[in-house]
Structures are given as C-alpha cells and as structure tokens.
Amino acid sequence: MVVKYRILSNTHIAKDIYEMCLSGNTEKITNSGQFINIQLDGFFLRRPISVCDITDDGLIIIYKILGDGTRYMSTLSAGDKLDAVTGLGNGFDIKKSGNKPLLIGGGVGVPPLYLLAKRLIAVGKTPSVILGFGCADEVFYKESFEALGCETVVTTVDGSMGVKGFVTDAVKGFDYDYIFTCGPPLMLKAVYDKTQTDGQFSFEERMACAIGACMGCTCRTKKGYKRLCKDGPVLSREEIIWE
C-alpha cells in the first residue's frame, strides 16, 4: 500500500549517513528486514530503503548519500511529506534462528539489523552484534545496539575505531549458532565463506516496481529464480548462488 508519511526529523548521524523519522501507517510492515520504496520529487524511480525501527506512530529509516536521489532526500526537513509503498520484501524469519544469533552488518546494511535485534530480544534470543564500517567517522548505532543489551563490536577498515579490519575479523570472538547479515555484496560473500552456521543474508539490487512485477531484480538461487524485491531481499544460506 502507498502511505503518505510526514517527516518528523532528518538527522545527519555519521559521514553521509542520515536518520529519518517518519510518522504514518506501518501496518503492512510485519517483519524486520522489510523495506519501503520512496518517491522523490524530480526522480522517476522510487528509492528502496530498509526499515530500521518501528515507533509508536511510524518508523525510522537510515540512508546513505550515494547519488542524486539520496542527496535530495538529505535536504528534506521536518514537516515535509514522503510518499512510500510500504511493507515490501520478505524480511528476516526469526523463527528459524538458533538461541545464540549473531548479527553482522556493514555500512548501510546495519539499519535493518536494529529492528531485527529488538524482535529477537522479544522472543528471548538476545543477539550479539558486529558492525563494520570504513572508518570512525562512518560509525553509527553502536550505542543503540548496546542500549538494547547486545554485546556489540565495531570494526573499521582503517582501525580508527574498534577492531581493525573487516567484520569477518571479529567473528571468531563470538559464540553463536546462527547468523543474520546485511551489507555490501563482497561483505556478504566473505561472511558466507567464513561462517558455517545456518543464516539469512539480506541483499540489495537496483529495482523498479519493488512489488514483484517487473523482473528487474531477479537472481538465481538453488530454489529457482527469485525476485529480490518480493521473494527477498533475505535469502537463506542454503539457497544462495554466488555469481
């Protein structure tokens, strides 16, 4: 469904990273890991952005300035309206999780893991968290995960905060029986290679309709072709084919 959200705040929280609080209907958003598809004045295609948190009267999204569309988004301010198709994608399935889940996020792959962490905590499976960034300037939401009670480790490529290196350099320090991960493709592949437990991987792709009609974001899986917007963006380890 299409919802006209009202922007409550649009805050710069890290290098090129903005947190936007929206007021409006969230009834179609049932799982963490789902996304909304946002219309922006002057741009033809909508921008798919994952849901970071559900609030009392709306939701929070976090986005990075990666092009003209997200740069325009960063200029919007409180009171502005935002037209979005909501409740898109399958999201994470927490029923499949083990008792000791590990969440691994990279860059703007971090936001959907926040709502996921809250949902896991609600069913008594408090996760551990690894957040990977390029440098200290880019780090966000470390304290938010810690405030939930999650053991949280930050990695930075240049070592300016936390563990120096990549998220996979921090994995061996954890006792876990299941992983949930979201981040850039190379990170997902590295996590896939360096972990052995079952897990769920959230992918991104350029999309047009984002409702499963246009076949713009199809990938091959061991369970057939899947539309990342509708059958994903979350895929299980056992179905992923790397191309």
């Binding site: 741009f43 033809f44 295609l45 569309g69 792709e205 350029r206 999309m207 047009a208 246009c214 076949m215 713009g216 974001c217 199809t218 990938c219 091959r220 072709y225 191309e243």
Partner: peptide, 23 residues
C-alpha cells in the same frame, strides 16, 4: 528464459532503462 544479468534497471531523466531480457 532467465533473462539478462543484473543490474537490469537504471534511472534516466523522466524515465528509466530496463534490460530484463524477456525473463
């Protein structure tokens, strides 16, 4: 048909490109 590899979609001024390839 699987169609073409991704990216299959690109934005343009007042429009878009697709190269789905008859999936």
């Amino acid at each position: 048909r699987f169609g073409n590899p991704t990216p299959r979609i690109a934005e343009t001024p007042s429009g878009m490109l697709n190269a789905v390839g008859l999936q």
